[in-house]
Design a binder for these strands. Structure first.
Lengths: 130, 130
DNA sequence: CCGCATCCCACATGATACTG
DNA sequence: CAGTATCATGTGGGATGCGG
């Protein structure tokens, strides 16, 4: 069996895979990482690139990504303030397996959609919307 | 910029990457897929393999995985009931990029931990627990 | 053994307003 | 511009009990 987490709560706290998935599995982290793939961006540039993220969630997600070392944050003490975010080496290296997953998703999306159609077509699975 | 989602809500509904990440990013799906990597298992076997999952969440996650075509569900009309779950071809193929991500996570976990320690050591980041 | 229904709570996320 | 603070809310997920 592949080892993804641990059987005891203590071990689960330090599961490497959960650490990573808790980040890229959330709603905004991956979008931010991909927005920064081309180079450094300012706060508002990221916000515009993503579109429908609230300032609160953007700030929070950026902090998490910074804490884990995926991005760097640089503040220029000018007025108005200017903050630039950039992928770190670690962040860029994460993008490699992530892009493989993205490629897989795009390749197999039709199969997933077909599987859902088949599943939803079965009479026994229609009680309510799921 | 890497394209991970869309800028409009309508497009976001059918984003392939979100479809996949919403699954493997949740709390139990990846654990179940990995538990099934070695072969078919009965409901209770999966529950024991994972350890601290509730029956409710196990059932729900298995349904989602079945609906998306990652696993197959086979019911034997015996008494007591007997249900076996098995990875589909699609599920096995998903494990390829997923295992790369797992490998990345295990390789780079020390760097993440170090980055967190550095971040948490900075005085300006200590207001509350985050 | 397998799974559904119900209740409930914690938390992630969003909306809005305010600040340096 | 780049946040912080506050309030509201939807949903994930646990506990428990019942049913086939």
């Amino acid at each position: 069996m592949l080892r993804v987490t641990a059987t005891t709560p203590q071990e689960a706290e330090s599961c490497p895979v959960r650490d990573v998935l808790d980040r890229i599995g959330d709603k905004w982290s991956l979008l931010i990482l991909c927005a920064l793939a081309d180079g450094k961006l300012r706060f508002m540039d990221i916000k515009r690139a993503i579109g429908d993220v609230s300032q609160r969630m953007l700030t929070q997600t950026l902090r998490h990504l910074e804490r884990d070392g995926y991005i760097t944050r640089r503040v220029y003490p000018s007025v108005p303030p200017r903050v630039e975010y950039e992928l770190s080496e670690l962040g860029r290296s994460l993008l490699v397996p992530v892009q493989q997953l993205i490629a897989w998703a795009e390749t197999h999306h039709p199969e997933i959609a077909a599987a859902r159609d088949r599943y939803d077509a079965r009479p026994e699975n229609v009680p309510q919307a799921d």
